[in-house]
Nucleic acid binder design. Sequence first.
DNA 1: AATCGGGCCTGCACGC
DNA 2: TGCGTGCAGGCCCGAT
Length: 286
Amino acid sequence: MPELPEVEVTRRGIEPWLVGQTVRRLVVRNANLRWPVPEVAGQIVGQTIRAVRRRAKYLLLDTDAGTTIVHLGMSGSLRILTRATPPAKHDHIDLELANGCVLRFNDPRRFGAWLWCELPEQAHPLLSKLGPEPLTEAFNPQYLQQALNGKSKAMKLCLMDNAIVVGVGNIYANEALFAAGIHPQTAGERVTVEQLLVLVAEIKAILAQAIEQGGTTLKDFVNADGKPGYFAQKLLVYGRGGQPCLHCGSLLSEIRLGQRSTVFCPTCQPAKASKAVSKPKNRPTD
DNA sequence: AATCGGGCCTGCACGC
DNA sequence: TGCGTGCAGGCCCGAT
């Protein structure tokens, strides 16, 4: 699943191939994504791509006429093709460039999106209510504390709330809460300042590490499978429900929170804040 | 106003 | 072997 690191790795991978290029053609084979690909998406044709940016998990292709907004959803991916390649199953969209390269969008589950918006994109309803980027200075313990003010819902759901902070999906929410010793069901407003300090640092560290790992596939980005692959990343709790905690050996609990699988260590992440909990050390880094 | 839960969609891991 | 079933999940939006 593309989380923020994977989207950023994708952005870095496609950017050098797109910037400065003029769009020759947009081929939409299947417009039925999360929302129908709008007719106006074709306005990118004839435009020169000025920049490839990322906001939250959205990729933004800037032109003078407007911005293409791409979301990879659950299963989407983008590849750069340097020579003619017949479309495979789920290859829904091609963006053909004047230099002959093609940006190809593949998305089996079609939870992704391909939209168009006239400048400025900040006004777009999908982007206008987003919280800060987790890897910027704007996301800090002081900010998070005030953002959680009055939030009675579970801290894990707060972390996954894009109005509070963007780009923290289910996997990283689980991992970050474990790293910070916070029980996922703790009400957002009840999380202590000390915990928020650790949590913010852990979120930044985990995401940055994942981007680095994805970076190893950058040089192979145009290869046949084209999959950014930080999948090798070691996860300490996600997907490990019922198995021993790698920090204390207790069996990890698995519950559902907001219909999503939630794994935590009942010892390292006690329901009530405890001063005795030390943060897990030696996060594996392969 | 804040929060909860439904729905979108396909591939895969299961069990029989 | 080939079914059917259930689950995975980001994110919008309607219901509470």
